[in-house]
Amino acid sequence: MKILLNLIKYIIVILLTFCIIGLLIINIASSTILKKQYVLNKLEETNYYEEIQKLIQDGFENYIGPSGLDESVIVDIVSLEKIKEDTNTIVSNMYDGTNTELNTETLRTNLRNNIDEYLNHRKLTTSENESIEKFIDMIEEEYIINILHTNYENDIYKVINKGNNFAENVNLVLILVTVASILLILIFNVKQIAQAIANFGVAFTASGLFYIVIKIYIGIKINVQNLSVLSPAFSQAMISVVQNVLNSILTYSIILFILGVVCICIGNSIIIKNEMKKRSKKKEY
């Protein structure tokens, strides 16, 4: 009977460990990669907008060579604020499911004005006008490609939305199971709460160790510093996000491990001291 009770106790401790593991990763994901404001902050931190501006300008320069126009026509046709605004629109489309299209009228107007000025406002032939319109179309497309980087905004929104819903539902379930496990451990150890503290300590230590192992595994298997996704600017932002998440995991896992060991020590020292008190009382009698 005692063995069975101990077995049940350890099963509940294992269940509590799983709950802590689940709660940690879900809450880290919800507060980082699944949160729009976090991603926008990371883009700002990693100078993403400035890097994209350079990339866009380099992209425009590719079209100048065959165009017969001077490089001055592509100067200042799109501002940093406009790039930020358009990038934020894309991010909103991905996180909020809005389907806002990018507005490139300002870019087209600025480019047309620059070309007119370069050509001293001379009257152009129909075919020259057509060629220049085509050139403006290509510059506009280059801008959209560099800002957008993907045609899968809607699909990304579905994944993020699913992720958020999943996190919310599973979080609730995990919280309920955690509370239930804690109550059961307390009930099983109602005569000796110190044993419950030691059991909690085992759960904290195990979950802390689990994430330490995961962090080490990822560190060995994936060279996060060399992550390369879509563009160097986007890669830098992604590296920052991934490193932040991994650092959070490591911090929490170390805290859990230390807290677990402390709870085990406290729990066991109270148990042993109580046992010694009982024995010395028995001896007196």
Partner: peptide, 23 residues
């Protein structure tokens, strides 16, 4: 010594739980 032994046993149990989970 008893506290130390009991603590070590509990930490070993925690390790085992981790190994079982990862396994």
């Amino acid at each position: 010594t008893k506290i130390f032994k009991a603590t070590i046993i509990d930490i070993i149990v925690a390790f085992l739980i981790t190994i079982i989970t990862i396994g």
